[in-house]
Simulated scan of single mutants.
Amino acid sequence: MLADALPIVRLVPNDTPRISRVVTCGPLVYLAGVTAAEPSPDFATQVRQVFERIDGFLEQGGSDKHHVLSATIWLADIRTIGVMNAVWDEWVSRDNAPARATVEARLAKPELKIEIGIVAIRSSS
C-alpha cells in the first residue's frame, strides 16, 4: 500500500485535532488553508500576512515558494482579486509559477478576507 511505502508526517498541529497545518508524504508538502493569524483590516496587508505564514509552514515542511505545485485561493470578496494578484505577483516564483484556482467563498470568520491552500514538493537542499 502507498501509506506503507510513504510515511505520512503531521507537522504543526492545529489547536484542535481536526486538522494538521502541515502534512508531508514522501516528497510532497500539503498546507491546510492558511489565513492571517491576526488579520489586518487592510486587505493587501492581510494577503501579505498569509504569504508570510505560508513561507514559514513551507520551511517547516522542507520546501519553499519556489517548489509550490498548486495553490487554491478563497476570497471573501472576488472583487479583491486585483489586489490579491498584485501581492501574489510580488510573492510567487516567476520561474516556477504553480497551478492555481481562485474562488469566492464565505470564510470561517468575518475578519478573514483570504485563505490559501498549498501543495508543494520538498526542495532538494
Rank of each mutant, 00 (worst) to 15 (best):
M1W: 12
A5Y: 11
E59W: 15
A105H: 07
A105Q: 12
T102N: 02
V23M: 04
V87Q: 05
E59A: 15
E38Y: 02
G26K: 13
V103C: 10
R18W: 14
L69E: 04
T35A: 02
I118L: 09
S124F: 14
L112V: 15
L31E: 03
V12N: 06
V23Y: 00
R18Y: 15
V34R: 09
I114C: 04
S63G: 02
P110T: 05
V119S: 01
A44D: 09
R10L: 01
I19N: 05
R100L: 14
S123C: 15
S40E: 06
W91N: 04
E38K: 02
V103M: 15
P110L: 10
I118E: 04
N14L: 14
A32E: 08
L28G: 00
D89H: 13
C25N: 10
R100Y: 11
L112M: 14
L28F: 13
D55W: 08
A76L: 11
S125D: 08
I121M: 12
T80C: 03
V12G: 00
N96H: 15
T24N: 05
P27Y: 05
T35E: 05
P98K: 10
R94N: 03
P98G: 03
N85V: 11
I8W: 09
A101S: 11
L69F: 03
P13G: 00
L58H: 01
D42R: 12
D95M: 10
D77H: 09
M84Y: 11
L2E: 12
A108W: 08
V103A: 14
A36F: 06
G62C: 10
V22I: 05
V119R: 06
A108E: 13
L28I: 08
P13E: 04
D64S: 08
T72H: 10
K65V: 13
S93A: 06
E104Y: 06
D42A: 05
L2S: 06
F57P: 00
L28R: 06
I54A: 02
I73Q: 01
L2V: 13
V34K: 10
V87H: 08
H67T: 02
